[in-house]
Amino acid sequence: MLNATDVPSGGPRVLIGATGSVAVTALPSYLDELRGRLGGTYTVLMSHTATSFIPPDTVRLSAERVVHGEAPSDWPTDKPSRLVADHDILVVLPATANILSAAATGAAPNRIATVVLASNFPVVFFPSMGGPMWNKAAVQRNVAQIREDGHHIPEPDWHDSFDIHSGLTTHHPTMPSPAKVAEIVGELLEKSRTA
């Protein structure tokens, strides 16, 4: 695994919005793949619920910066307009139904949603949630609205997983592989450079 000090200068400045899904536990492998393919620098903006699944110090092993919490003393460097100015793309990984709803309606209940509103660069959401949730009309309306607004939501991959509490295997949408995510992010960065 690469450490922040091993990163060459230059390359894209990637802002990752990490939301509260169990899928966020895989974030370090996505960061490593993105860095390996695209180079650049990585800031991870974690929602409060994301930090309950994976500690910020663990994420910090694969990113130059990790932003979490809402301490007023951090506002000069961590306010949404500054985060937008310092990056080239926002990758919401994973994207929960909650962040999709906020983005679709223009709400700003947290810093990730506020960065989406303030963005002047590509924003891509990689959904991960339960199958019945993804198939709800409200979620699909939100997905359609976000796409209509010019943001990107690739179709999720579908996986089977065993739920230890119910004893059932469920089929649900989640993020594509780290390699596929890196490919999609690289394509969006290339398009924004040539636009």
Results as ranks from 00 to 15, higher is better:
residue 159 H to L: 12
residue 192 S to T: 13
residue 135 N to M: 14
residue 53 F to L: 06
residue 35 R to V: 03
residue 73 S to Q: 15
residue 164 I to G: 09
residue 31 L to S: 03
residue 152 H to M: 03
residue 97 A to W: 04
residue 122 P to C: 10
residue 183 E to N: 06
residue 84 V to Y: 08
residue 185 V to Y: 00
residue 76 P to S: 06
residue 187 E to V: 12
residue 31 L to R: 02
residue 100 L to E: 02
residue 70 E to D: 13
residue 68 H to F: 15
residue 81 S to P: 02
residue 80 P to Q: 05
residue 62 S to C: 14
residue 34 L to T: 00
residue 131 G to I: 08
residue 92 V to S: 04
residue 40 G to Y: 02
residue 125 F to K: 00
residue 93 L to D: 05
residue 176 P to K: 12
residue 116 V to P: 00
residue 165 H to S: 13
residue 101 S to L: 07
residue 6 D to W: 06
residue 17 G to T: 11
residue 104 A to V: 05
residue 190 E to Q: 13
residue 99 I to K: 03
residue 88 D to C: 02
residue 35 R to T: 05
residue 82 R to W: 01
residue 33 E to W: 05
residue 9 S to K: 14
residue 84 V to W: 07
residue 32 D to H: 14
residue 73 S to G: 10
residue 55 P to A: 15
residue 140 Q to I: 09
residue 188 L to G: 01
residue 39 G to P: 03
residue 179 A to Q: 10
residue 119 S to A: 15
residue 43 T to F: 04
residue 150 G to K: 03
residue 27 L to Q: 00
residue 178 P to W: 03
residue 19 T to E: 01
residue 128 S to R: 08
residue 55 P to D: 11
residue 96 T to A: 12
residue 7 V to F: 13
residue 33 E to R: 12
residue 22 V to T: 14
residue 170 T to F: 15
residue 55 P to V: 11
residue 168 L to Y: 07
residue 190 E to K: 13
